[in-house]
Design a protein around this nucleic acid. Structure first.
Lengths: 133, 133, 133, 133
DNA sequence: GTGGTCTAGACCACA
DNA sequence: GTGGTCTAGACCACC
């Protein structure tokens, strides 16, 4: 896993890093059960404050993506600790709504959206295979 | 023009709305010379603070996209720069990528995503008709 | 609403205060839509660090009990923003499990538990009526 | 004696287990002179660090509740102080109160609570039989 | 005025 | 060693 944040970017550091971890888990770069760097190590590596890492790990644990065991460290959670089906679909739908509004405002149709979605899904599978293979 | 902001979204209200106006101009939904809603009308419609609208109009006027004529209202300035098709698809694809990462993390498949997308598009059309009709 | 925390207690300050707010909402002392004290005001009142209040409000917003609107303040959320039925039952069941384990270890039976539960529910309704009435 | 700890609970593991032993002694489930599991057996059973067990046994010995005899194991010391019925019901009621507050906040009724309690009690009995049988 | 983010550094509890 | 909590104080963005 390659760690990097840009403190100068408009997006807050903690949000950049959360996205990075989420993508890592989604693509398989961070497998279930894998141990994440300790709070202090990651803070030192990225030259940011440890509390910022604490915030990120805490937030991702609340979302069910990470598990933390005191004195041991923080780990990638398995799929077992996840939310209900309806809850998960609601979260994804929220994201899709953002894409739909964007598309409508830019003059794209529902058909365009489905085409783009298929294209991005395909590309996403490619990244995943690299990590698995 | 379809106006919508989400006060709960991470993106600040004023930025959501500025983006919407810029995109409206980019796609032609807001033609050169078109009149924008008055500050108080738009504030009432979106249930947000009128000062927020004032800030947006002022900022866009500073950027040269809008023109304010005392006592008449705010209008789209001439010579709007339309985005290319590829550019617009790139913006929408970014949003879709966010939805895909979320979906993979939550154990949903590409098929699930297409199903949810279709459902949300349908619902979005319904809401739109209510506003138009 | 009466605010009080004990920095000397074993339970962390933020957890004490979270419980207090939850009980306030549950009993009706904090009605839906009510505005909570600002981060700075509450911190000054309780003589604790503002960041501790921020942590509490953030956590309760994640749980869907509070809503925060930037520049306006933090408010008690309505019942509409709540979780799915299954999700809510899961959260409550976790608490009940704790009570069951405690009961078994102390030699109480399932019948005892139901009797105690009925008694505590009754007492809880009384508190609620005081706030409503 | 039914042994169980939850590494994800807010309460630290060592405190959960210490409470369990104290309650076992209080109710008589662990009679005076009874032998406790060996450090490594209990650690393996609960999938926790053996050092944690050592810490608990040492602390309880310091409190005079346990006695360690080299090469033989750890035993319950004499003259255990049993809690009164009222005292035990009070401890369980505290746990139930937590469940009630959570339930009210999540919009569940007293009837829901009783239903969930019955369901969890039933499930708990099943697990118990598996361990006994 | 409001909350959001981040830093620096302390002390504690846990495994 | 690990994470958890809290303080003090900074600067920013938002309404």
């Amino acid at each position: 896993m390659h760690w990097a944040v840009d403190p100068q970017a408009g997006e807050p550091i903690y949000r950049q890093l959360m996205g990075q971890i989420k993508r890592g888990i989604a693509t398989g770069a961070l497998a279930a059960g894998a141990k994440l760097p300790s709070v202090r190590d990651l803070a030192k590596l990225l030259v940011i404050n440890p509390n910022t890492i604490v915030k990120i790990y805490t937030e991702l644990e609340r979302e069910g993506l990470l598990l933390t065991r005191r004195g041991l460290g923080t780990f990638v959670a398995g799929a077992s600790t996840r939310l209900s089906r309806a809850e998960r679909e609601r979260l994804v739908s929220q994201r899709l709504d953002g894409a739909i509004v964007e598309a409508v405002n830019l003059g794209l149709t529902a058909a365009d959206l489905h085409r783009l979605l298929a294209a991005r899904c395909a590309r996403f599978d490619c990244e995943r295979e690299k990590n698995v293979g």
